[in-house]
Design a protein around this nucleic acid. Structure first.
Length: 851
RNA sequence: GCCCGCGUGGUGGAAUGGUAGACACAGGAGACUUAAAAUCUCCAGGCCGAAAGGCCGUGCCGGUUCGAGUCCGGCCGCGGGUACCA
């Protein structure tokens, strides 16, 4: 062999690892464990280059930790339930199960050639009955522990997929998968009591030091803690008080009306004999509560005729309106409007001709509000109109607390902490999901299924020719025996949200074949996930649900206390993007997208190979099938090999940022690996007895590289680590060192490259006669003594501008360095006779002469 | 609107407050070759200059510091998150 041939090398070493069982994870209390996990994929059928980047990052960590003596758990599985399988069944016939498992086979076949250090024996799919059966068991335990309940709820209904969506799954008023306009409907649903954990989930964020600050902040905002006050307003007709919630208690002084939600019990009751109100409610229900829709929607209200008394001034009567902008789900479903200090309330007041009353003015400025509400910033002090005449910063926490105290002291209201986070509705009216293991019995009501009857398996004989849930119309599946009374009963036909499946898979990987959800010894040993890697798009949902599940599993005895936060460190990686090449269709004017291989690049412009027409280039767009800019990793492996693909996705761009896939970049990576291979080949052919001239310099550089690459890998600075490896390769190829030093250097290079390009590394290791497998060799150690240079080059600045540099012995003291610097010809010239006022010497760094 | 992040060559990007532009892509020059490809060597922020060297330069304006891409204040632009949340 005299050329770098990845196809041969890669297959050979993959087999060697498999035969040796190098990456099989076996519990071993004598070694420190390390659990590295990448978010498992949905089995769409094709591996995406983005998957390659994600799993390569995880693999670098896994292989590095393996080399540093850790017992590594690095598993892979499939998040296999969900609607695409049903959609495929509807579109092309067949069965979701077949579609899914066949896709899994395809994807495994595509992943294996990448050479990931995965323990494939632990693989499972969430649609395996062995997995979802344990999930049903967890559900029953959660139910018993009071962590699951049923309630009627107005839900987001996707009319195309015929299912309920979580608020989080509604994007711009549309279903996150179908894209259909979401409607509001009332159904009986199962809920996880995640809101019981609002405070804890929020508090614990502070301790997740190895999570990106951004993700913690996003979760914090999502949980949305606010401290405010609940104020009861007495009705003039003597009926029950209307309780409002406000986070700006001080604005109560300026309240001029109340607005209640269309879903408020009062609204609903009135709707029964008032068609106008009924119509208004119906109209409001059509709106959805998401940003885009609300933004456009007009703020509308309807007068109820009810009036209430102002708590501070009972002789003031305030009208009660129904407002389409008041949400029943947040606070109490009723607000008081203070037009003077809230723009929305002011707009509403102007529209319906309601009075504007000031609660406060700015010091020295008592201008009345007309079109713009007076809203102080957190640090601004205000002067209240009455009672509260001191200067106060109204919107700071202190100001709010002060107001609450004042109101509580007068029995006007009660301080309340509210969270935005709502319970997690998990019921889905779908077939391809985990069946909820309960039955409905006419005599006993809703009864949990017995654990010995688990798994409640999905029936295979279903059809998808009509929308809706095939379980509902299955002839026999629903029929069952009530576990309580033994009479005839009906199964629950709702299945679980697929986010449930992904909320505990990480725990299942510790004992994937166990006959209980987890196995204590295994979970205690392997948990927590030391390093979790995935996309930022899961910052809120998946990660928050998993945090809740870990707590619930702790309470029900499936995980220990330490795993209530299951992911010790989180890394969110960027996407792999690719340019889009488009032209315009002459007739329709619509864009036509061209595959990269049909385009030729010249002078930074793109032309169609076919007819030479110039294409418009959209750089760095997310890969999308419809834009014809998807790069298939299998093509890359076929042309360049897995190591090239792995090397390229790690180089150039920091891992948290998006990386642009370019053909030129991939080719450059391939060329480099070829150079490394040739270098190894050349060293192999050197005469072992020949000694060289600069062994010490080469080894010094080697130790520096070990240090820098180690730091790079430890800190997710893969691109920087790769830059160092380029540099060292260059040093090595130019080195005049003897065979022994060259051999040591190239073997070290192989080890340092091994996490990124494991096959090439293994091959070099083998050719140089390394012991056993490179993958099993201990990580090289940087020897600080070997990194020390005898001399150091110091830049000399004059007034902060670099004017010269001197190379001096490393151990000179400040005075000596100063003397040498001032004697430097360029310094004397630049000083031009001036006397330095001060000379700052930072040994090993810099000299700055101040004139 | 609010919250967060980011603005560095033609491009992707380096840089514990200490020589800005490492490394790579694209580009240029050269070597090898009949030629091309491949490979190798060198050059390369901008402006002035034959060179030595000088001036300018990390979105803009200011500040702290012996010294700022880095820290602070203000602005502009881009990206992300989020909300009729009371």
């Amino acid at each position: 062999m005299d050329r770098y041939t990845p196809s041969e090398i890669e297959a050979k070493w993959q087999k060697a690892w498999e035969d040796a069982g190098t990456f099989r994870a076996v519990r071993d209390e004598s070694k420190p464990k390390y659990y590295v996990l990448e978010m498992f994929p949905y089995p769409s059928g094709r591996i995406h280059i983005g998957h390659v980047r994600n799993y390569t990052m995880g693999d670098v960590i896994a292989r590095y930790k393996h080399a540093t003596g850790h017992n590594v758990l690095h598993p892979m599985g499939f998040d296999a339930f969900g609607m695409p399988a049903e959609n495929a069944a509807m579109a092309i016939g067949g069965h979701p199960k077949e579609w899914t498992y066949s896709n899994i086979d395809d994807m495994v076949a595509q992943m294996k050639p990448m050479g990931f250090s995965l323990d494939w024996e632990r693989m499972f799919a969430t649609c395996d009955p062995e997995y979802y059966g344990q999930q049903q068991s967890l559900f029953l335990d959660f139910l018993e522990a009071g962590l699951v309940y049923r309630k009627n709820a107005v839900v987001n209904w996707d009319p195309v997929d015929m299912t309920v969506l979580a608020n989080e799954q509604v994007i711009d008023g549309k279903g996150w998968r179908s894209g259909a306009d979401v409607e509001r409907r009332e159904l009986t649903q199962w809920f996880f009591k995640i809101s019981d954990y609002s405070e804890e989930l929020l508090e614990a964020l502070d301790h997740l030091e190895n999570w990106p600050a951004k993700v913690r902040l996003m979760q914090e905002n999502w949980i949305g803690k606010s401290r405010g006050i609940e104020v009861p307003f007495a009705r003039t007709d003597g009926a029950e008080d209307i309780v409002c919630y406000s986070t700006r208690p001080d604005t109560l002084r300026g309240a001029t009306f109340l607005a209640i939600s269309a879903e408020h019990p009062i609204s609903r009751a009135m709707a029964e004999d008032d068609p106008e109100i009924a119509a208004f409610i119906a109209e409001t229900r059509k709106m959805d509560t998401t940003e885009a829709a609300m933004e456009k929607a007009e703020k509308k209200g309807l007068k109820t005729g009810i009036t209430v008394r102002h708590p501070i001034w009972p002789d003031r009567e305030l009208p009660v309106w129904i407002g389409n902008f008041v949400l029943m789900e947040y606070g109490t479903g009723a607000i008081y409007g203070c037009p003077a200090h809230d723009q929305r309330d002011l707009d509403f007041a102007r529209k319906y001709d309601l009075p504007v009353v000031h609660a406060f003015h700015m010091p020295g400025d008592d201008t009345e509000v007309t079109t713009e509400a007076l809203v102080p910033t957190k640090s601004e002090k205000v002067v209240y109109v009455d009672h509260f005449t001191g200067l106060t910063d109204a919107t700071s926490q202190e100001g709010i607390d002060q107001s609450i105290d004042w109101m509580e002291a007068r029995d006007l209201g009660t301080g309340q902490v509210k969270f935005r986070l709502r319970d997690w509705g998990l019921s889905r009216q779908r077939y391809w999901g985990c069946p909820i293991p309960v039955v409905h019995c006419d005599t006993c009501g809703v009864v949990p299924e017995k654990k010995e009857n688990l798994p409640i398996e999905l029936p295979d004989d279903v059809s998808f020719d009509i929308p809706g849930n095939p379980l509902d119309r299955h002839p026999t599946w629903r029929n069952c025996i009530c576990p309580k009374c033994g009479g005839a009963a009906l199964r629950e036909t709702d299945t679980m949200d697929t986010f449930v499946d992904s909320s505990w898979y990480f725990a299942r990987f510790t004992a994937p074949r166990a006959t209980t959800p987890t196995e204590k010894a295994d979970a205690d040993y392997w948990m927590n996930v030391d390093q979790y890697i995935g996309g930022i798009e899961h910052a809120i949902l998946h990660l928050l649900y998993s945090r809740f599940f870990a707590r619930a599993m702790n309470i029900t005895g499936h995980l220990s206390e330490k795993s209530r936060e299951p992911f010790d460190a989180l890394f969110t990686q960027g996407m792999v993007t690719h340019a889009i090449f488009q032209t315009e269709d002459a007739q329709t004017g619509r864009p036509v997208y061209h595959y990269p291989e049909t385009v030729e690049l010249r002078d930074g412009k793109a032309f169609l190979k076919e007819d030479g027409r110039e294409c418009q280039v959209v750089p760095s767009a997310k890969m999308s099938k419809s834009k014809n800019n998807v790069v298939d990793p299998m093509d890359i492996i076929a042309s360049f090999g897995a190591d090239t693909a792995r090397w390229f996705v790690l180089s150039d761009s920091p891992p948290e940022r998006d990386v642009e896939w370019t053909a030129a970049g991939a080719e450059a990576a391939y060329k480099h690996l070829g150079r490394v291979w040739s270098l190894c080949d050349r060293i192999g052919k050197m005469n072992p007895s020949v000694s060289g001239s600069d062994d010490a310099a080469l080894l010094r550089e080697m130790h520096k590289t070990i240090h820098d690459v180690t730091m790079g890998v430890e800190s997710f600075g893969f691109n920087a680590a790769i830059a160092k490896l380029y540099g060292f390769t260059s040093t090595l190829s130019k080195s005049k060192a003897g065979h022994a030093a060259m051999r040591e250097a190239v073997m070290t290079l192989a080890q340092l490259m091994a996490p990124m390009t494991p096959h090439l590394a293994e091959d070099i290791w083998h050719h140089q006669g390394g012991d056993g497998l490179c993958a099993e060799a201990p990580w090289p150690q940087a020897d600080p003594d070997m990194m020390i240079e005898d001399t150091v080059t110091l830049p000399i600045q004059i007034n902060g501008k670099r004017r010269a540099e001197v190379t001096v012995a490393k151990d000179l003291d400040k005075a000596e360095i100063e003397a040498i610097a001032l004697a430097e010809e360029a310094v004397i010239r630049a000083l031009d006779g001036a006397t330095p006022k001060k000379v700052i010497v930072v040994p090993g760094r810099i000299v700055n002469v101040v004139v």
